[in-house]
C-alpha cells in the first residue's frame, strides 16, 4: 500500500533538483496525528479509496518551494510557494497513481488542499494510518496514507 507512494518520492524528487532523498522509518499510527507546518491532503478514489496527507515543517516547506522554483529565494509562504507545494503533492500522488496502475490498480486523485499552522490534529478515514518519513536534503517530509 505504501510502496507506490515511497517509490514516487524517490523517483520524482531527484527530478525536481533534490540531491539526497532518503527513506526513513515506516510506522503505523492508530491515533490522531499531530502536525505543524504545511499539510497538503488529496483524495483518492478508484480501486482504492482514501486520502494521502503530506506534512513538512514551515522552514522545510519554504526550502522545498525554493528548490522547486529553481532556487528563487522564498522568505514567506506566499501564493507562489503554496502553489509549488500543491503542485509537488499533485506530482507525487499522480506518480503513485501510475505506480498503482502498473500493479493493475486504477485510482484517480482529487485537487490538493493545502493548510498550514501549528499543532494541527489530523483525523483520517481509517484507524490505521501508514506513515513514511523521508529526509530530503535535510528536510523532513512525512506521508500519511489511509487507503481501503
Amino acid at each position: 500500500m505504501i510502496k507506490p507512494f515511497t517509490t514516487a518520492v524517490t523517483d520524482v524528487l531527484p527530478q525536481l533538483g533534490f540531491q539526497c532523498v532518503t527513506q526513513k522509518e515506516i510506522t503505523v499510527k492508530s491515533k490522531k496525528i499531530i502536525a505543524s507546518g504545511v499539510v497538503v491532503t488529496l483524495g483518492i478514489v478508484g480501486d482504492k479509496k482514501g486520502n494521502v496527507v503530506y506534512t513538512i515543517n514551515k522552514e522545510g516547506a519554504k526550502n522545498i518551494a525554493s528548490i522547486m522554483m529553481m532556487g528563487m529565494p522564498v522568505e514567506e509562504l506566499d501564493d507562489m510557494a503554496k502553489s509549488a507545494l500543491s503542485e509537488l503533492s499533485n506530482m507525487l500522488t499522480a506518480n503513485a497513481g501510475i505506480n498503482f496502475s502498473n500493479d493493475g490498480i486504477t485510482v484517480d486523485i482529487s485537487v490538493p488542499t493545502l493548510m498550514y499552522g501549528d499543532d494541527i490534529e489530523l483525523s483520517m478515514n481509517k484507524d490505521e494510518i501508514i506513515c513514511a518519513e523521508f529526509d530530503v536534503d535535510g528536510i523532513k517530509l512525512e506521508i500519511s496514507i489511509a487507503l481501503d
Binding site: 478514489v45 479509496k49 500543491s86 482529487s110 499552522g117 499543532d119 483525523s123
Partner: peptide
C-alpha cells in the same frame, strides 16, 4: 463525480489555502 473520504483538521492556528483553481 465521486467523493473521497473526509480528512479532519483540528487546531487553534490553521490557515486554509483556497487554491488557484
Amino acid at each position: 463525480l465521486r467523493v473521497s473520504p473526509p480528512t479532519v483538521f483540528r487546531g487553534n492556528d490553521i490557515t486554509i489555502s483556497l487554491g488557484d483553481f
